[in-house]
Amino acid sequence: MTADGKAVLYETPRALETSEIPGVIDAYRQAAKNALQAGFDGVEIHGANGYLIEQFLQSHTNLRTDQYGGSIANRVRFLMEVTKAVVEVWGADRVGVRLSPYGVANGSGEPDPMPLYTHAVEQLNPLGLAYLHFIEPRSSGAGRAEVNHQNVPSAMVLFRPIWKGVLITAGGFHRRGRGCRDRRWPCRRGRVRPHLHLQSRTCRAACSAASR
């Protein structure tokens, strides 16, 4: 689709040349400066939902053979370089990162997310970020129809033990005992932990207790 809403054929994207990557990181850095100029209170780096950072992280989309592809350490490199660039602008305590380890949105995918995302968390920990924000495995930026991780534990169970800062999780929260009206997002009773009955099922994320 074009910017004015006209439907056209998809074009086949090409991989970034290794030499182009610093320029993309500069774009994130400049956008962080722009956010400062606009008066925001901080910045969240969106590394979920099949966006560029997740394309580097997950093996379904990252077929690179340079230092940004292959091993887990290599695939996490782009996330870390973007994060450090944004931290240079804002300071770590005003920067958050959003990830969707079990996400399948927009053609992403990782057969075994925990080793990859454990490494990412371990790399992010020493930076002292404001928070880390996970989309719950039970949910998806693409809607539930694509989700096949209903039996995976909550991101709070998976990542609270290893992330040292404030943890936010989002997705699949709903009102107690009330069905969701949207048929695409069927309500599942008993799925939400008792202290997490929220006013809206997906529009709000719940911050779990800070442990620092």
Binding site: P13, V43, H46, T61, N62, R94
Partner: peptide, 30 residues
């Protein structure tokens, strides 16, 4: 906080007049 994102590879709506930069880019060939 602002949320900074780059959806390259999903970038299928770049207007034709801005195509000078070439095809949509991504982390890797899809």
């Amino acid at each position: 906080p602002a949320a900074l994102a780059c959806r390259a590879r999903l970038a299928f709506l770049v207007p034709a007049r801005r195509r000078a930069a070439g095809r949509a880019i991504g982390g890797a060939d899809r």
